Computed example of a mutant assay.
Amino acid sequence: MSPYQFLSLSTKPSAQLCYSFHPAVGTAKPVLIVFVNGLGLPQTSWEGAITRLQTQPPAAGLPAMLTYDRYGQGQTTDRDPDDNTEDPMHGHDTLTVVRDLHQLITQIASEKMGISNLNPGSLSLVLVSNSIGGALVRLYAQEYPGTVAGLLFLDSVLANSDFVSIYPDPDAPGFDPTSLPDGVTVDAIRAARAYMQRVFHPSNGSREGLSRKNLAQLLPDSDGPKLQGPDGGPWVTVVGHEFEAFKTEFEQMGGAPPRLTEVYMNPYWHRFNEGLAKLTEPARSKGPLQAPGAGHFVQRDNPELVANELREILDKIL
């Protein structure tokens, strides 16, 4: 029997979302783990980590778990009914997705857990995210302060970057080509910048209609604002890709030669992740870590690590 079901949000009754819900086992504490996808992989990508948690649950029991596909993603074939139809690739922004997620959690908590409101203290959330999901869970924690007890970031999107300027501009006034590190050429930098403009710049929309055009304005800093959990800052663990694995993966995508990823992309992303680790108080922060053997899709490449880090967060909350 498939674990995947469909429901309509009461705020958008004309469309259906696909989701899976796993009831709590061995714990009555009102906690819900929510897995938040990136743009690249759907909710099925969390199955490996979920199975490992079910096989080896935390000592205090395993809370309820929720996965879902956003409108226009994975098994959710319905589009967001409120989308801007003039440009379907930029139909809605991340705040729209956050409000939809809040409505989904509200309905799941009521229908599956018997919790009729999401006021701080009535239900604690643990949000697990990959890629753009990292921006979504940050915005969720900002929009609904006091509700998020734990955050596990898996190679979060570089929310405040245009991606192009990760690499120096060889056409900028005063650019000195002799200053380039060994193994880096002007032609390679130009090609990498052109690829980023074509593929990852926020002006590029997405098939599901989620736009990143205003993301840098919504989240201008990786290290703030500080987030508020139910009893102080949330527990935050930041996991990034393994540098070596990502160099290979990014080259295979057509993104950049390994030397450029080594010199520019990996250090840039690591600094961003260092900022994410400061979103809570130091005693509740872990990372940034590199996920052994994992490229950008950490939950696919190393589900064991995801389960282990999530279990560690739950041990502190339950």
Results as ranks from 00 to 15, higher is better:
156 S>P: 01
100 D>Q: 09
188 A>R: 07
208 E>P: 06
87 D>L: 04
49 A>P: 01
18 C>K: 00
7 L>D: 04
73 Q>F: 09
204 N>I: 14
276 L>Q: 03
111 E>A: 15
315 D>A: 06
65 M>Q: 13
279 L>I: 00
115 I>C: 03
175 F>A: 12
211 S>G: 11
56 Q>R: 10
270 H>W: 09
198 R>L: 07
234 P>H: 00
155 D>L: 02
249 E>F: 09
254 G>H: 06
212 R>K: 15
4 Y>W: 11
227 L>T: 02
46 W>V: 14
57 P>M: 12
14 S>Q: 13
24 A>P: 13
284 R>L: 06
205 G>W: 06
279 L>R: 01
289 L>G: 03
217 Q>V: 10
179 S>H: 03
8 S>K: 11
115 I>S: 07
71 Y>H: 06
236 V>S: 01
56 Q>Y: 03
158 L>P: 02
296 H>R: 13
221 D>P: 08
303 P>R: 14
104 L>Q: 03
259 R>H: 02
239 V>D: 00
43 Q>C: 14
214 N>A: 13
62 L>R: 15
72 G>D: 04
96 T>F: 13
256 A>V: 11
262 E>K: 08
124 S>K: 12
317 I>H: 01
272 F>D: 02
171 D>F: 06
196 M>L: 13
198 R>V: 08
94 T>M: 14
221 D>Q: 09
34 V>Y: 03
69 D>G: 10
310 L>I: 01
68 Y>P: 02
287 G>L: 00
111 E>K: 15
146 G>S: 00
308 N>C: 08
136 L>S: 11
111 E>G: 11
31 V>K: 11
138 R>E: 00
113 M>D: 07
216 A>V: 08
235 W>F: 05
125 L>F: 00
277 A>V: 08
92 H>A: 12
239 V>R: 00
55 T>K: 14
302 N>R: 05
106 T>F: 03
29 K>Q: 15
43 Q>W: 12
238 V>M: 07
86 E>V: 11
143 E>C: 07
259 R>P: 03
173 P>T: 09
250 F>C: 06
219 L>I: 01
298 V>N: 01
180 L>C: 07
5 Q>N: 05
